[in-house]
């Protein structure tokens, strides 16, 4: 092994020749910064800047076309505090996220366990599971829109033909049905991501662990409970964090299906923010709604972060 010099040799040892530019060019620490700069520039331009602009806007009364707007402090938030539609959208978002994520996790885990078994056409079935994930959201939303149509719904039609109901279900017109319908569509779309990621996690578990557990006397439930589940927790934490973040910030599906209706029953914070900020033009208020999502998202990340921190066995440190 060769030792790596802490700074590149500079040929400019002569008196007065080692300029500041030369040092910036060759010093290892600076070099690292040069290499990171392109990526950092992208992140700053397309992520950090819009984020801070959004937060800043939430403290102004900016409107579309005005350019700028005045600093109004917490006024937007004070308005929102007394805005029942905003609180309804918070409730909707939490309901949507919690119910959809929980079901996505359960169904995704079940599918992953199923797909991890030996079966004919395994590769084909695994690929097929990904289809809902590949189809563009808006396309699948339009398909669901037809499925949920008040007159032509295939579900209503089938149930009527089977004699289970006698009139069409108003899937997207009734608040409870509408909430259930958008949650179902979100689950349909989100399950493949959870299932395939958990399947990848399952495949990292050595089969000999299951064999050892079998010989140790574990039933199949005990093998899941004591081997599969604990070994999968790190991946569950990651995949569920992502799933929660995606669900919480969902926009496309709702917008294509219900636009937040009926009577705001399916308005999420993201759709409300868009409606207030862009459609109504009140940028400040829209930005305040969007900014209000940040604490929830931070909380979701914090939970999974601390969840992962506890797992000592993953870290290979030798604490003699």
């Amino acid at each position: 092994m060769t030792t790596i010099p802490t700074s590149l040799p500079t040929p400019t040892r002569h008196f007065g020749k080692s300029s500041a530019w030369d040092r910036l060019r060759t010093n290892r620490n600076w070099l690292a910064i040069w290499f990171m700069l392109p990526a950092a520039a992208f992140l700053i331009l397309f992520l950090a800047y819009p984020l801070f602009l959004g937060v800043w806007m939430s403290f102004t009364d900016d409107r579309i076309g005005r350019g700028g707007g005045n600093f109004v402090g917490l006024e937007n938030y004070e308005w929102l505090k007394d805005d029942s539609i905003f609180w309804l959208s918070v409730f909707n978002t939490l309901l949507y996220t919690i119910v959809a994520s929980a079901i996505k996790f359960a169904v995704g885990l079940y599918l992953a366990l199923l797909l991890n078994r030996h079966m004919p056409f395994k590769a084909l079935i695994r690929a097929a599971v990904l289809i809902p994930f590949i189809v563009p959201t808006v396309l699948s939303a339009i398909a669901f829109w037809w499925i949920y149509d008040s007159q032509f719904s295939i579900i209503s039609w089938s149930l009527i033909k089977m004699g289970l109901i006698d009139h069409n279900i108003n899937f997207l017109g009734d608040s409870s049905w509408a909430r259930g319908s958008v949650i179902f569509a979100n689950i349909w779309r989100g399950v493949p991501f959870v299932a395939i990621t958990l399947l990848a996690g399952l495949q990292t578990v050595s089969p000999s662990l299951y064999e050892a557990a079998t010989l140790d006397g574990a039933t199949s439930w005990q093998r899941f409970r004591f081997i599969t589940y604990p070994l999968l927790t790190p991946i569950i934490a990651v995949v569920m964090t992502f799933s929660v973040l995606f669900t919480f910030t969902d926009f496309q599906l709702i917008w294509a299906l219900t636009r937040g209706g009926p009577v705001n029953a399916t308005h999420l914070m993201a759709t409300l923010s868009y409606q207030r900020g862009i459609l109504s033009g009140r940028l400040g208020e829209g930005a305040a709604i969007a900014t209000a999502m940040i604490p929830f998202l931070m909380a979701a990340i914090a939970i999974s972060w601390f969840g992962m921190q506890r797992r000592k066995w993953q870290q290979g440190t030798d604490n003699d």
Binding site: L209, A212, L215, F226, I227
Partner: peptide, 11 residues
Amino acid sequence: MVFQNYALYPH
């Protein structure tokens, strides 16, 4: 049984 890769439960 003692396995070739030991099959110790890592967690």
